[in-house]
Design a protein around this nucleic acid. Structure first.
Length: 106
DNA sequence: ATCCTGACGCTAT
DNA sequence: AATAGCGCCAGGA
């Protein structure tokens, strides 16, 4: 039995590696990740989100956000701090300016 | 197989 | 701007 780290599916790896490629000060979205992986793995935004909910803690999770520039309430305080630190383009509301900050996986 | 849940996204109010 | 409804779909129970 492998009692080591939680087993990651290929899909999990794919999602996490995309997040790892997001440059400092930029973001990507669950939808963008889903689009990039759909042809190979299928799945939609929720599938990508699920991966982040389970494994996000070991990557720059604040760089993977909703299409409206936010994250769930319980993550917003921490995320904002990170966004400010790395100079992520924000909107007056405090949400990320997705139009300016979006990085699309290629 | 069935039911429920969820770090989503889009449209219509 | 804020809320509601609905489609979506993988995982776990």
């Amino acid at each position: 039995m492998d009692l080591g780290p939680v087993e990651l599916t290929d899909y999990d790896d794919a999602v996490l590696s995309i997040v790892e490629r997001v440059p400092r000060g930029r973001v990507t979205t669950y939808g963008a990740i889903a689009d990039a992986l759909h042809d190979v793995f299928g799945g939609g935004p929720r599938a990508a989100a699920r991966v982040m909910s389970q494994h996000g803690s070991n990557v720059a999770w604040w760089r993977c956000i909703r299409s409206d520039g936010t994250l769930p309430a319980w993550l917003l305080d921490e995320a904002r701090q990170a966004w400010l630190e790395e100079g992520t383009p924000l909107r007056p509301s405090g949400a990320v300016d997705v139009g300016r900050a979006l990085w699309v996986p290629s």
